[in-house]
Design a protein around this nucleic acid. Structure first.
Lengths: 348, 348
DNA sequence: GTGCGCTTGTAAAACGCTTTACCGAGGGTG
DNA sequence: CACCCTCGGTAAAGCGTTTTACAAGCGCAC
């Protein structure tokens, strides 16, 4: 495998000249330039990336750490980041934490040790002091999707509060006054904000007494199953459920179906994320859609900005990307209350 | 940031000694060892990975290239490989080809240029000469899930033919004699083998005339939609459909539902992959399940074997991992033919 | 003709590690 | 006593770039 000095020898110049020419920091008269280009192609020279990285002190690769890869939300996120990284000629090294604190810290360390130029970090659990410390001591890090409160690094989230408001307003407009909110643990910003927006708008539109019960837990099918079991024991039962993730929807449907509860006749259901094939479920599930692709792209963009513009430490921003309501067939007016003010969609 | 010579100075020994001690190629009397350990922890020394890689000529990272990341099958595959790589202390650099030939070749080049120690490669399209060339010239490469015929590298597939047989035997046992096979383009080994096993076993069990129609195409929802449209125009219509991927199932259901065809009353459906939430569809879909986790783990294992045992070039193997039939509620005896020999499962 | 600055280079020092080749001392063996 | 081996350790040569510091040649203004 040819190296720089082979090229230099063949072209009859020094390695420095070749290196600088190839990196564009030296312009040569056409004759010389062509000699070098010829040597490169004859020798099929390709710079050794390890040497280059050692010399330059950077790796042209960024890290992406997510709690999990297999689920549809993170899978789409990873895909979005990978695509954007590739477009910019960056490598992407991928890590899954499986929500284990030790791993989160370990991967952050690998950023601090300069294995990587930058990192996009998404966590899924309530942050603790160790994580906060680790995050704080990192440069070129951006937090995505979920907060680590107190960390002064750039952050990119979807507009969770607006999403909550959309869900609340949709349910309220359909006539629901008693709902079950099932969502993320309240120490997590996404959960808190979704709930806040939801409650606010539900109250505002309902313009009368509303009842909101809550089941909290991680964004997993298990939380959905728990919530469904709780729902089954409630009396009276709420007329609608706001599930704040796709996975929660999945668990919910599983046990609701077994209990012969039908959606939306017995209870309305609205989800959050909208990355899985929710449109194929029975019935197709109405949900708040997160802009996954934009989330990933924007996060990468910010990492690169902090790389370029290393001076001046720009004020860490918190960016909110807009969500949208995707109406399908899982939300209807409450049973026994045929709300004429509402244009009910047919469920297949 | 401390480096090796700082540690050596502090411990009062030479860099060589520290390096060899730290890498386990030198064992020292306890006193010396402790001096070095102390120096390391006082200085918070961590070896510079770029330097180490340059020096050793390897990166302790392997590549994983897949056609796409966002879909559930590849997402699960990526997750499996990542987990296994992490367990072994290896980095994972991820690339998506989006089925673009140029990208496939480019990523293979990056393996040949020694950017990475090894690579797991999964393609999704019929191979061409350029791809074959690229694959052939790579070392420490393993092909996963889909073949590049003619390449003499290790390969890991699921047992597609056995999966086909299972589907065929299941449908035949239920009484189906006229079926629609929708599957991968026939230049692709997975498609060919699934079909071969399917046809073989269907014929064998049916023990009489059977009719198999085929719709071929990539493993995408669009192929499923095409197939469904084709199905709707057939006369007489087949009584069962074998869709050889989850994505095909999704497309199929979409248009079948719109056409008010119900499963399994009007037509039985059996899928392949079983990685999405098929159990939540209406009805839950019976499918052949691929051992995704094992596939990923095994592929990585083989890459590492070729790394360790670089001499002797062991005969490239083709390993087949077993699939299983997961019975749900989308297969029933053909309408109007209440087959008493069959224990029909209730569909919810 | 001296000094200045631009062009076209070059030599050599990092970058931080691994690894090869050696070497002295101590201890057993014949 | 000569010999050989092992243990504990060292010096130095890579690994393949980038980058800094410097220089020869040359035109040009003063």
């Amino acid at each position: 495998m040819a190296n720089l000095s082979d090229v230099a020898r063949k072209a009859g110049v020094s390695v420095t000249t070749v290196s600088r020419f190839l990196n564009g920091s030296l312009s040569l008269p056409e004759a010389r330039a062509q000699q070098i280009r010829d040597a490169v192609s004859e020798l099929r020279y390709v710079p050794n990336p390890h040497a280059r990285r050692l010399s330059r002190g950077r790796s042209d690769a960024i890290g992406l750490v997510v709690p999990d890869i297999a689920g549809p939300f993170f899978a789409k996120l990873v895909a979005a980041v990978e695509e954007e990284a590739d477009r910019r000629g960056l490598g992407l090294v991928l890590h899954a934490t499986l929500n284990r604190p030790a791993r989160e810290v370990r991967y952050l360390d690998s950023l601090r040790m300069r294995h990587l130029d930058g990192m996009i970090f998404v966590t899924n659990r309530a942050a603790d002091a160790a994580l906060l410390d680790a995050v704080r001591s990192c440069r070129h890090l951006v937090l995505l999707d979920e907060d680590v409160p107190g960390a002064d690094v750039p952050k990119v989230f979807c507009d969770n509060e607006a999403g909550g408001r959309m869900a609340g307003s949709h349910l309220a407009a359909m006539g629901h006054r008693s709902v079950l909110f099932v969502g993320g643990a309240s120490e997590m910003i996404s959960g808190r904000r979704r709930y806040r927006g939801f409650e606010q708008e539900l109250q505002r539109i309902a313009d009368g007494p509303v009842r909101i019960e809550r089941v909290l837990g991680p964004y997993t099918p298990e939380t959905g199953r728990d919530a469904a079991r709780h729902y089954l024991q409630m009396d009276p039962r709420p007329t609608a459920i706001f599930a704040s993730s796709d996975d929660i929807v999945i668990g919910l449907i599983e046990v609701l179906r077994d209990a012969l509860i039908t959606i939306p006749d017995d209870v309305s259901l609205i989800g959050f994320d909208d990355v899985g094939p929710l449109h194929l479920f029975a019935p197709p599930i109405t949900a708040i859609r997160q802009p996954v692709r934009e989330l990933g792209g924007r996060a990468l963009g910010i990492v690169l900005d902090t790389l370029r513009n290393d001076t001046g430490e720009p004020a860490p921003t918190e960016e909110l990307l807009p969500v949208t309501l995707v109406e399908r067939a899982s939300v209807a007016p409450p049973a026994g209350r045929s709300n004429a003010a509402v244009n009910r969609r047919a469920s297949p």
